[in-house]
Structures are given as C-alpha cells and as structure tokens.
Amino acid sequence: MTFGFAPPPAYDPSHRLGRILEPAEWAAAKIPLLSNPRELVSGLHARHLPLPSTAVVGVLHQDGRLAASASFRQRSTDADGWELRNGLLARLRRIIPHDLRLRAPVRTAVLLYCREGSGNWTEEDGAWMWGLRDACTLHGLRCGAYITMTPSGWQVLGEGRSGRRPYAGSRREAFAAEATEISVDGAASRNVDGAAPGGLQHSAAC
C-alpha cells in the first residue's frame, strides 16, 4: 500500500475539483472550535511572521496548548488540494511524531494561511481545507480550524470569529524567536532548509 507523495497516474483537471472543500462541506465536518482563537493566531503570527502566500501549520495538545508549528510558502495557482496536502504532510512529519497507532486522534492540527484579498472563502481556501483534512488523516491527527489572514485581519472560516490584529503585513508584537526547528523535548535546535534566522521557511516546537 502506498501513501503520501506518489503523483496521480495522469493529470486530469476534473480531479482537482474533488480536492476542494466547499464551505458547507467544511461546516459538515464538525471541526472542533478553538478555545481562544485570538491567542492562537497572535502566537503563530509572532513566531512565524507570515507574508502573503505563507501557510503556518500548528499542532495542538488536548488542552489546546501549541505543541509544534511550521511555516512555508507554497501557493497553488490551480488550487490543487493534493499538492497542498503533500506540503503540509511533509512539515508535520518533520516537527512532530505521528499518532497513527492510537485508536482515536488526541492532537489537533490547525492551519493559518496568509494571503491577499478579503477574508471570504476562495477556491484556494477550499484546496487548503482539503489538504489539511487529508494530511491530518495520514498523520493521525484531528483536523482543526482553518484561518485566513489578510490585510484586513484574520478570520476562522466556518466559525464567524475574526479580529483586525494581527493582519497580513503587521509586525511581530510578542515573541523574538529565530527561524529554527526545536525538538519536542527542547533539547536541540537548528535552522531548517538552510533558512537564515528571521527567514520565512521555518518550524518550531513549543
């Protein structure tokens, strides 16, 4: 059995449409609510300083505390959830062990995507939603919230909760962490993918 990164046998544009979640489908998935979305968004923004076209994936403990997070730039102009799923899965595998041996997921993955435009749902958002849901299944995690960050602020899609700060392009206000990857036990750290401190592509465990 093969998982993960094997490409489809042949490209078919119609397949792409099946790798996008509409808002109604996302709502029907009963995504768990965030206990404190403003705190989570502010923390992820401060750690990763996302610019437009940057995705920040975070993994939450059962009590809602952030266990690990990673950011990367991977824009899909064709809004293909399969491609975005692979990018998310690669970062999840790097920052935290899978929970596939558990009967039911205990940790939750959330995704913050920084982009231009309004906070309204787009096909690109639908592709990220599909990618997040599928990456969570393959890594043994619960699928959590999808959050957009635009120049006007942030919004948890499907929940109606939003805020004006932080926003796309706003400066870090709390943390001063470098672009590093830190082991789950906090014993070691190193730069990721050759990124210089303060770079865009990095991950960190908290």
Rank of each mutant, 00 (worst) to 15 (best):
S183W: 06
L33H: 11
R133K: 03
P23R: 00
Q74M: 10
D12E: 13
R91L: 13
P13W: 08
G186H: 12
A195N: 00
E178S: 07
G153D: 15
S14Q: 14
W121F: 03
A188M: 11
Q201A: 05
I182N: 09
R16Q: 03
S71T: 10
S76E: 08
F175R: 10
D125N: 08
K30F: 06
P97Y: 06
S170E: 13
L84Q: 01
E124G: 13
L102C: 02
R161A: 06
T180W: 01
H48N: 14
I96Y: 13
G169K: 10
L17F: 09
E25Q: 01
G4H: 01
G186E: 11
H139A: 06
A109H: 05
D99K: 09
S76H: 07
L44N: 14
S53I: 10
A6I: 13
E83R: 01
S162Q: 12
A68V: 05
L34N: 05
I182V: 15
Y146K: 00
L132M: 01
R161N: 06
R172P: 15
G18T: 15
L49T: 06
S183C: 11
R164Q: 12
S162K: 08
I95A: 02
R16V: 08
S152T: 07
R19T: 06
L34I: 11
G81C: 04
F5I: 04
G144I: 04
P13V: 11
R19S: 00
R19K: 10
V192D: 10
I182R: 15
V59F: 09
E123A: 07
T148K: 11
H98I: 03
R101I: 15
E39Q: 04
L17E: 04
M129V: 11
L112H: 12
R38I: 11
S189Q: 15
R107E: 07
A109N: 01
L92P: 06
W26L: 02
G158V: 00
S162T: 12
H61L: 02
P9F: 05
A205S: 15
H61P: 03
L33E: 05
P197M: 05
R38S: 04
G186M: 12
M129F: 03
L44T: 13
G169Q: 08
R172Y: 10
S203W: 14
P166M: 12
A168Q: 14
P32Y: 03
G186D: 14
F72M: 06
E178A: 15
A195G: 07
G81T: 01
T77N: 01
D134G: 02
E178R: 09
G58D: 12
R101P: 08
A24E: 04
P50L: 01
E25F: 04
L102W: 13
A29Y: 02
W82T: 03
A188H: 11
Y113G: 08
T148Y: 11
I95D: 10
P7I: 14
F175A: 07
W130N: 01
F5Q: 01
Y146F: 13
S69K: 13
R142Y: 09
W26N: 10
P97L: 04
D63F: 03
P166Q: 08
L100T: 07
A195F: 00
W154E: 09
